[in-house]
Design a protein around this nucleic acid. Sequence first.
DNA 1: CGAGTCATTGATCTGTCTCAATATTAGTGG
DNA 2: CCACTAATATTGAGACAGATCAATGACTCG
Lengths: 264, 264
Amino acid sequence: MLDAITLTEAYNVSSLSDQAWISPPMNPELFKVACSNCNLRELCMPVGLQQAEMVKLDSVVSTRKRIKEGSHLFSHGDPFTTLYAIRTGYFKTSVLSEDGREQVTGFQMAGEIIGMDGIVSDQHHCNAIALEDAEVCVMPFENVEELSREFPVLQRHVHKIMSREIVRENGVMMLLGNMRAEERLAAFLLNLVQRLHARGFSQTEFVLRMTREEIGSYLGMKLETVSRTFSKFSEEGIIEVKQRNVKILNPDALKNIFTPQSCG
Amino acid sequence: MLDAITLTEAYNVSSLSDQAWISPPMNPELFKVACSNCNLRELCMPVGLQQAEMVKLDSVVSTRKRIKEGSHLFSHGDPFTTLYAIRTGYFKTSVLSEDGREQVTGFQMAGEIIGMDGIVSDQHHCNAIALEDAEVCVMPFENVEELSREFPVLQRHVHKIMSREIVRENGVMMLLGNMRAEERLAAFLLNLVQRLHARGFSQTEFVLRMTREEIGSYLGMKLETVSRTFSKFSEEGIIEVKQRNVKILNPDALKNIFTPQSCG
DNA sequence: CGAGTCATTGATCTGTCTCAATATTAGTGG
DNA sequence: CCACTAATATTGAGACAGATCAATGACTCG
């Protein structure tokens, strides 16, 4: 069985780091069909399951589904029936206010679970939109619940996934309620890099999958402010930015942005 | 069996509305010991359970616990073992940034469940602090999970409670990311009134349990701005404010505050 | 190559913060 | 019961971070 280190190495691109601004390797061939044989199993639904349980989990995943860049995996109001595990590609989730303002509530990547917003009222509250061509595992929630009743380990894992989302959103509330523009962007970049690193990508350079406007919506600031803040970090030698390509030159400086001052 | 209407009437104070600024009736005698006989069962854990299931649920609630105003039910870093159902009193939950800034993540009242932030890492991420003397039902999470495996209805309910929290936080993100000070306070008041009404209290007048600073922390604004916005609503005849006593004179005007403009 | 989308940068404006002073209320002890 | 204190709330004046408006530049894709 692959451990986390092996997984990391399988995706590691640091040996390619002399080629600047490369895209992360998103070759679909790397992914096997079943959970029990999936490269993402250390990050995704099967975490902590025994082999026998994991084989059972394979039966939970009913189908796979491809989503074209820009199209909706689900939309506000859609009936909720299933959770989705992201295999490849990136998503954003967002909510719309009654008067049409969009708030991006998160950016999701491979191994992350989306759709939990739909459980409470059997219909989705968010929109989930692919930021690039993507593939997801369809996990009918009935199946998840049934298997959860059988396997306490899976039950606990499902609870942890939902709890993690609650805690993540607490962090976003801290960000939106208490931080200045620079702090927000620094927190965003650090979080992104940390999650990419957990998937075996470089800790220093990556390609943003979202526009300045989407970043701004997520961080509660205007796209111009996002752009200006990127430029400021760049002038200070903390990062290098070319459009959506970002290289972190001084991670410590990014972490030291945080000082108690006014918010927005 | 009491239905929701009966519950509402049991708590209704509208007949006392000529006495302005009264406190909601929080007589502990109203509450019976067991879930199966609790006035809050239409709002709390037992929603949708059959009598037999509810009797079983009684065994989940191991003990009750009293918390003095200002003291912590749990704190960041505390080991997580149980969820809590609020019987009486109000709580705030908050997170602290590394440099000591507080972000209030929510205000909770009778019938609401807190502690779910602890599941993901077996320790709490939030602080939960009583805003007045309070009483909670202690529900060891092991028990909850065990009974969930037995009763799909309870399992689904637990999932819904967590999903509801995710959706609630999405709403707060919208508020913090996209709304002006007036909109934030209006949304806050409307939400509070709606939840109080569901518990049988007046739709028009109530007593705030939290300081201006705590409201401000929750809404991502300074206490002075909270106070000014209260005064503005008051000058416009939308509400009447005397310190923590609030009377909503024109609910429609509150709902019409929302117009797409700049945020914070 | 051309049109549309996305990003950058500048100049100005404004909502909210900051600092500061005062008013109100609740709690305490004599 | 009333002073005294601490906590909380209100209000004012000025400052500033980020929004807005606007123009230009860079990239993508058919």
